[in-house]
Structures are given as C-alpha cells and as structure tokens.
Design a protein around this nucleic acid. Structure first.
Length: 288
DNA sequence: ACCGCACCCTGAGCGC
DNA sequence: TGCGCTCAGGGTGCGG
C-alpha cells in the first residue's frame, strides 16, 4: 500500500507524537521475516532511548534516537504504523468486524512492535499482516545497503536524469519508474497515474521515451505524489494514517484499479495488463 | 549492468 | 459452508 505519499503522510502525522519522547518499554512479536534485527536485541536497544527525529528516504522511515542509533522501518505492502487507540476498520480482521468490535485497535497477532513511552500513552504500534515490512536497527554512524541503493527521491524527480538513465534500458518505462535505484518512492499506483497524466503507455520501452516526454513525466510524478500527500495518501486496501484516518487519494486516481471503466478524457475503456508481475492500468487511446 | 522470474506472507473475494 | 484458486500497492536474490 504504502508508496512515497503514504510513507510521508505517516511521517508527518507521527512525528509530533513520537519525537522528543523517551521509550519506556518495548514489546515485540516472535522472531520472523519481519525482524531483520532480532526482536530481543531490538527491544534491548530501544528501551530507555529518546526518539530525536523521524525522517523518510524513498519508502523507508528512519527513526533517529538521541544516542545516535537509528531504526529503519519499511511498511512493505500491508504495514500500519499508528498511535495506540487509533480507530479504524482497517485495523481489524474480517472476523473482528463481524463480531462487532468497535474498531479501536487492540494488539492482535499481526501487531509485531509496540513502543510505550515514559510520559504515558499513547504508544506507537506497528502492525503488518503480510510481514513484508521490515524493522532494522542501525548502530551509530552505520548506514545500510538498502538506503545506499536508493536513487533520487521521487519528490525531486528529474526528467533529464531519467532520460539519461533510460538510454540503456530495454525494459518498459514503467519498470524504470518502479526501480527504486532510479527513483525512490514510486510504486505501482503512482507509476500508473503519472504515465497516464503524461500520455505514455507503460509498456513502451524506456529507450523509446523522448527527453521531452521524460521532462513531462518527471513533472507529473512530482505532481501526483504531492497531490496524494495533500489528500492523506491512498487507502485502497490497508493504509491508514497514524490517527486511524483513511487517505482520500483513491478517489482521485484516474486509471489505477479502474479496469473496464471509461477514461475521463476520451471515454475509452481502461485496460489492465501485467508488466513485471505487477498489474498496470492505462488508456489505450490517450497513452501511446 | 540489466532482465525476468520465483519467492517471502496472510487474507479477501470469487466461482463452484 | 467449504474448497481451491487468484489477487494484492513491497523488496530480494537468483540465473541467464
């Protein structure tokens, strides 16, 4: 769910609730694929530490601690980072829905990390059903290959740079947009939307897109990401803001998950195809 | 260096 | 009601 706008919305809403607070206790779920740093070691390292910053790089969040350690967080596909007490139907399983839970988030088996603070509630919760999310502790001064690999932040998408990087690529232009080493933060939804806004078909070879088109595309990448941040992100399946609220951008998307619907410009039928194992949506008439 | 693919995990929604 | 299937916005690691 979470692409750059959702991660940025999370960061902006979460920061005032956590920065400057001291972690009093840490509860972790069992070791899993989710914990790159084993839970016991993570809990020991975080307990008693003060959170000094919350930053974003691409789709990663970096929680800085006053002692110089940093916690690298990734929301994966179903990650939810929120304050305890947040109310959202998206925080419940279907079973909880039907049993009439009021939506107030109780830790369930998908809540892998709980931080509680010295000055009292609410604490921070990290829930992730599919466990494609990640938690990783970075020692003071230490970086991580995941971060080193990231290309330019997509909010600063640069058309000329995209054009240069595209010259030796035989893969489709959409694959280029999704490459985090090229543009950090763009995912499936916003790639489809930006290509639609630019009149470029996602299947077209990256090499076949002109400099002029890359300039337009970079502009539209920025535009769609900023607009989504303004509306609180896209809550298409699991994303919620730290306060439990849904984003609204899903109501503004033009092609993503609109297969079979009419294009807003020309009324042609939006089609869905698969590119690189991911669904892609476009207007066969407006996008060439 | 790049490309396509399998894989990590769980749940929802569908047809039968 | 239940079974089996497909799908889901993430990234990584592999062989070619």
């Amino acid at each position: 769910m979470p692409e750059l706008p959702e991660v940025e919305v999370t960061r902006r809403l979460l920061a005032p609730h956590v920065v400057g607070r001291r972690i009093q206790s840490v509860r972790c779920g069992p070791p899993s694929y989710f914990f790159i740093t084993p839970p016991r070691r993570l809990a020991a390292a975080l307990t008693g530490r003060e959170i000094s910053s919350l930053e974003r790089q691409g789709k990663y969040l970096l929680m800085g601690l006053a002692d110089g350690q940093r916690v690298l967080l990734h929301l994966g596909m179903t990650g939810q980072l929120f304050m305890a007490g947040a109310v959202s139907p998206r925080l419940m399983t279907l079973a909880q829905h039907s049993s009439g839970n009021d939506g107030n988030a109780q830790p369930d088996r998908h809540t892998h990390l709980e931080l509680d603070f010295a000055d009292g509630p609410p604490g921070l919760r990290f829930r992730d059903v599919r466990k494609f999310g990640k938690v990783l502790l970075l020692a003071p001064g230490k970086g991580d290959a995941r971060l080193d690999k990231l290309g330019r932040d997509a909010l600063q998408a640069d058309g000329e740079l995209l054009y240069q990087l595209s010259r030796k690529r035989s893969a489709p232009v959409k694959t280029l947009l999704l490459d985090q080493g090229v543009l950090a933060g763009v995912g499936n939804i916003y790639a489809d939307e930006a290509l639609y806004m630019s009149g470029i078909r996602p299947t077209r070879g990256a090499r076949r897109v002109s400099r002029r088109e890359y300039l337009l595309l970079a502009d539209n990448v920025q535009r769609v990401l900023l607009r989504s941040i303004e509306t609180g992100g896209s809550s298409i399946s699991d994303f919620i803001a730290p306060d439990g609220k849904d984003g609204q951008f899903q109501n503004e998307r033009k092609v993503y998950a609109r297969e079979g619907e009419a294009c807003g410009i020309c009324s042609s039928v939006i089609v869905r195809i698969v590119i690189g194992q991911r669904s892609s949506h476009y207007c066969p008439s407006c996008q060439r």
